[in-house]
Design a protein around this nucleic acid. Structure first.
Lengths: 206, 206
DNA sequence: TGAGAAATAGGGGGAAACCCCCAAAAAGCT
DNA sequence: AGCTTTTTGGGGGTTTCCCCCTATTTCTCA
């Protein structure tokens, strides 16, 4: 069972900042979890939880940037808002290039931060929605046997059964059987469906 | 005929900066064009020319940010490198969100800038390559008549001719004729091909 | 070692798609 | 008005696909 209520994960080594952010976010009825360091958060985080991250760039040990890059490498779709105390253009650019959702300077306007968090949560909802659809399809394609995968590739590349059979050194009948099983396992209602699902999967695999 | 040699478009109101950048870029055998203001560049720029833009954020009239946003709205695929004299995180974030290729602070290391320019030009090459492929396909789909487009939509959504005919109030024979013309005009070698081309076009239309 | 799945292959038949031919009404464009 | 394109429809045949059934060999896993 997945959670539906999003959580704002606050990561900052300064207890005063954590408390103040917790209070601010809770004031608009948001769930908040605070962590004193990036590794502490990474340890506790369940990848299925929706939400967004609010993290300070400058922290002892792992910086906010490194946390953001670590989350990205784990293909976590959690939007990361990075907060900085001192103007550092280099860091801002690096963070944005690394896919950070935003990069804001202290002191920030409370309402502006809340708006930003809402946008991040909205983005996260959309991402998760797409992800769920993607996983449903992937799960069905995972059911395919190696041979069925080979046949699938040739089907999607537009080959007729006759040439698929020749290509794989099989009889047309066998290809027909594989093809039928591919359509059944992937729950494709038509060839067009099948091709669309495959291209969708290819998009997010690269 | 398209140009193959890329050009670096330098946009800066300071003649000394223009000259120094021109000299630097020319020293590695790059073509350079300089402009004293954003509108001046926009006026002179031919959208088919490959290259990248080097622009200062702070200029009288139109800023580097505005230039970058204007280029983006024209669906110009020219990578924009924005140069700033003073640290401004807000601007850096806005630029990166707006799709700037990079945002660097003065004074910059000459070699670092040259490397950056080369990366931007490489990105531009890739973008143009994809764009050209896309346009070739688009041009073929533009040949379709309204009726053929309707039939195409239903084909791609997986409907068999029988239901397409019923759906559009036509005989199966007519649908067959339209379908054949769709395959011919789009130069699709198979249904799989057709679906792939349509999904590719849909990707870049949204 | 035995059950089940995967891979192989066939028969037969029906549905769908694809291929050529044709033709005529309707709409658009000089 | 005359020409072109579009849209419409058909005849007839070939190819491909899809679905029912059976059957053997191989492989894996419990």
């Amino acid at each position: 069972m997945e959670e539906h209520k999003p959580t704002v994960f606050v990561v900052d080594d300064d207890p005063a900042v954590r408390d103040s952010l917790r209070w601010l976010l809770a004031s608009v009825d948001l769930d908040v979890e605070t962590y004193a360091s990036a590794p502490e958060f990474l340890d506790a985080y369940d990848p299925d939880k929706p939400g967004c991250v609010l993290v300070d760039v400058r922290m002892p040990g792992m910086s906010g940037l490194e946390l953001q890059e670590e989350l990205a490498s784990r293909s976590t779709k959690l939007p990361v808002i990075i907060i900085t105390g001192h103007s550092d253009v280099q860091m801002a650019v690096r963070a944005m290039k690394g896919g950070a959702f935003d990069f804001i300077e202290k002191p920030f306007n409370d309402q502006a931060l809340l708006d930003l968090v809402q946008k991040a949560l909205e983005r996260n909802r959309e991402t998760i929605e797409a992800q769920v659809e993607h996983e449903h399809i992937q799960r069905r394609f995972d059911l395919l046997s190696p041979r069925e995968r080979q046949v699938l590739d040739l089907i999607v590349s537009g080959e007729p059964n006759k040439r698929i059979a020749f290509n794989l050194g099989l009889s047309e009948k066998t290809v027909e059987a594989h093809r039928a099983r591919v359509m059944e396992k992937t729950e494709a209602g038509s060839l067009a469906d099948l091709v669309k699902m495959v291209t969708l999967l290819q998009q997010h695999s690269s």
